[in-house]
Design a protein around this nucleic acid. Sequence first.
RNA 1: GCCCCCAUCGUCUAGAGGCCUAGGACGCCACCCUUUCAAGGUGGAGAUCAGGGGUUCGAAUCCCCUUGGGGGCACCA
Length: 500
Amino acid sequence: MPATRVRIAPSPTGPLHIGTARTALFNYLYARRHGGTFILRLEDTDVARSTVAFEADILEQLHWLGIAWDEGPDVAGGDDRGPFGPYRQMQRLERYAEAAGDLLARDLAYPCFCTTDELDADRKAQEAAHQPPRYIGRCAALTAEERAARVAEGRRSALRFRVRADRVSFDDLVRDEVEIDTANLGGDFVIVRSDGTPLYHFTVVVDDAAMEISHVIRGEDHLSNTPKHILLFRALGHEMPAFAHLPLILNPDRTKMSKRKSQTAIADYRAEGFVPEALVNYLALLGWSTGTEEEILSLDELTSRFDLEHVQKGGAVFDRERLEWLNGQWIRKLGPEDLIERLQPFLEADRQAGRIDRVPTPEELRPLVPIIQERLPTLGAVGDLIGFLWVDRVTVDPATLIPKRWDRGTTLGALQAGRETIAASVGPVTFEADELEPPLRALAEERGWKAGDLFMAIRVAVTGRTATPPLFDSLVALGRERVLARLDAAIDTLGRSEVS
RNA sequence: GCCCCCAUCGUCUAGAGGCCUAGGACGCCACCCUUUCAAGGUGGAGAUCAGGGGUUCGAAUCCCCUUGGGGGCACCA
């Protein structure tokens, strides 16, 4: 029984994509479940589009998600570790060159001198004739002399792999038997560009073989490419890995999830305040299930339950609402200190954006945890929720100050009475929720007001908004001085306004 | 156009011939709790299992066809 070795092979041509993250997760879970090895390999042969910044983002976000790899690069632009390195394809060029030389020597591949223009013209003609695009084989049977002549002309050549008439089938671990006629592969395909750099279909096979990958677990968008890979594995004389093609993550319109139609960068979800536990949990359940009704699962719990049998075959629409719900579930599971720590960067961001004037200390945050924890859909919502506590002044809209059942005069009177009640009945030292509520309720009863209306007027006066954490906790967090000052300011604002 | 794959509530899914008058979750609606907002609790609407043929005593589950959807067909990955 050969060792279980799986890999994620992202291309640093963009930030870590949610689909890549899920594929990485499934590979990770599979490796951990089977005591195997999980490898990260960077496919950076598209030199024009690959950047170190993207590489850094991919590594960073995978680390953040807790999807740890056993072999591969750990630092952008840095060294990598593992016995099958290097793990960046641009550092493995000799290996591809060697494999290419081998195929060329055995005439399993040949130099192609076709120009881009020629190829484009071929494609256009095929399109006009309603034919599927395919390489017509112009250079497939060139003699040594003809090749030499073209080289003498100074023409560069790409290397094409010969696709012979055959039927290729493989046993996909999630979709069972898949079969295709090689006539539908589009003809001989390029494996090395004319500039000498190798192409994906080629490098992936050379590397999967060299790194002794046992299971290729990837997105369904590669299903149609698999026969090409199989042909290459055979030509190169390598043992075939098992294949498992995962269903695609879809946009709401059921097309392959894309940046154009959906938010795809993991970094963006992170910046919004999604916690890695929720993202991992959600992504694992997109296209896979435990087979039970469990759904709140940690990475470890997912690991112990993972299997390829329960992987769905059809694509899965990305449902942000469900992600948000799961995020709330995970936020509620966080310990107080953990939550406080995770909130810091978001509060700092709010301060930098001018949404709050000061970042609270952990000590200030601690007593607020019970009232905010169940109200945060994301960590990033913290400013929206209790930002009024750290701003120098709140903006109060006179119109919202007036409860729906009241008019301007009643509100004005209520705010003044409320202010006096708070000032008179509660001293600066013993400013506590338990001591604030009874006198204010008594006031409402005495004046024949609904307590809720009084509370709402005070709430808006003091926070600037109609939806806040419980009023008395909010007042306590603000402190007597600020409560009174804000009430005064609101009374003033309403007093001058024209609204009724 | 050609090839490949797929098809259970709006969405994610359970279901591997009888346990299904199809279960759970998100979302939605109502009620409870309640000073607002959440959270939580309870209940509800929501799927003729895409359609049509078979096979079988019996099909969401097996087979075929149709339809629909998606993916792939690059000197991108």
